[in-house]
Design a protein around this nucleic acid. Structure first.
Lengths: 237, 237
DNA sequence: CCTGGTTATTCTCACTCCGAGATTTACTCG
DNA sequence: CGAGTAAATCTCGGAGTGAGAATAACCAGG
């Protein structure tokens, strides 16, 4: 850190990759831009860092403001910063991106100050402005990895959930099928991952089956042992 | 991302947490500040993002310039961004920090434009400027975690190394003792982690023992299965 | 009400992996 | 040469895993 005399003017924005699961697919929240550049195309919710505002605070604000979502995300964490000199044609912009997880929420309402916002399946996105496609990809990969060793999946679920619902979250985010029996054994054997509420669902599944027991998120911060994805040869080398 | 009309002036700096192992202890490179604020106290090498310069590029430049180290680090990656409004008393500064790993290097030479720089054991650091102590702590924790599932430890070693040297790296970074026999079995059983050069050390250890086989880093990007730290109860909840 | 299909939960079994300890072998030092 | 040290390998009991099966509860439709 040197003297402040000469430094290139840089703007700092905060962008948010908000993920949820709808309809058995992983979705990300994007908004339609109404200003140049990229007016009319889709982008991550985000904006300039306010004066006196912490980075995480700005991320939460942008998410609430631009998405029109009232509910708080269940979890938000810093994803990374993107500073390619050419990433914004107007001027030098460094984006500090955040990753948020939310249970399935209603469609965002378009408010007065709210651009058109909506959930889109991450594997079928329209072209995104700036380097936002890259940021989404990084966020999805982070989410996939974190499901393995943290109780993050519970952030996609409601206050209470069944083991099958939790399994569906894993299957959706990872894009793989999991063995129901082994998953069940594994989840219940990890201390602090979930705790039984004592209740069950009101009815069986829509296509039959017994009532499932309900659980809520436990107090573990790490899964021990972890729930590992099926081996992905291509990822190793 | 909105219009550029009004945004608070923000400066972006890039700071580097460079780690190495010397003398069986984990060390971080720090420099002595010669300007206010915190003149005379220690800080991470870093500085302002240059115009037209990518973030990672700036990190490599700062490390080379301020440390006076000629050699390139074996690995460098983004650690995170720090933007507390009060972290710098002069003005609003967001720091994008990078984490670098290097094999044991000679002491940095103090050049003309080079502040006093030196390696310090991370568990015995002087007070650091700004929030740099926090950044170092985050970097060390990241390094510890990454040793588990990536071949990062080889970045701390030279071009060739023995299994014992690799084990010493793990023991030093994790601060634990490892079972030599099991570690040996594990390392050689992970595909692509290390590959034998065919050679051995010239002599046995300083206190005896046979010549050890030499290995170089393999082509794996992930360790499968991972080398897990001994269970840390306190980390889970 | 009875039947077939569906799902939650538990169990079995063979296999792999792991930690702890012991063994064998090669080398240094005095 | 003998004691001590370290590299590399092996053993063994326990824990964890994937695949499959068994049991039981529940829905929908006849």
């Amino acid at each position: 850190m040197e003297d402040f005399g000469l430094y290139a003017p840089v703007a700092v924005t905060v962008d948010v990759v908000a993920l949820t699961i709808r309809d058995r697919r992983l979705h990300v929240l994007i908004v339609e831009r109404d200003a140049e550049p990229y007016a009319g195309s889709w982008a991550l919710p985000g904006g300039f860092l306010g004066p006196g505002e912490d980075l995480a605070e700005a991320a939460r604000r942008e998410l609430a403001e631009e998405s029109g979502l009232g509910a708080r995300p269940a979890h938000i964490e810093q994803l990374g910063s993107y500073g390619d000199p050419a990433r914004d044609p107007r001027m030098r912009v460094v984006s500090v991106s955040y990753l948020a997880f939310a249970p399935d929420l209603p469609d965002p309402r378009a408010g007065a100050d709210t651009a058109t916002a909506g959930w889109h399946a991450v594997d079928d996105l329209p072209p995104l402005a700036f380097d936002h496609a890259r940021i989404v990809a990084d966020g999805v990969e982070r989410a996939r990895a974190k499901l393995e060793y943290t109780p993050l999946a519970t952030a996609f679920a409601g206050a209470t959930f069944t083991v099958s619902e939790l399994r569906l979250i894993y299957e959706t985010v990872w894009g793989t099928r999991l063995h129901a029996g082994n998953f069940h054994r594994k989840v219940l054997s990890v201390p602090g991952f979930v705790e039984a509420t004592g209740g069950t669902t009101e009815t069986g599944g829509t296509r039959g089956g017994p009532r499932a027991r309900l659980y809520r998120a436990g107090d573990a911060r790490l899964l021990h042992p972890p729930l590992l994805r099926p081996a992905r040869e291509e990822a190793i080398r």
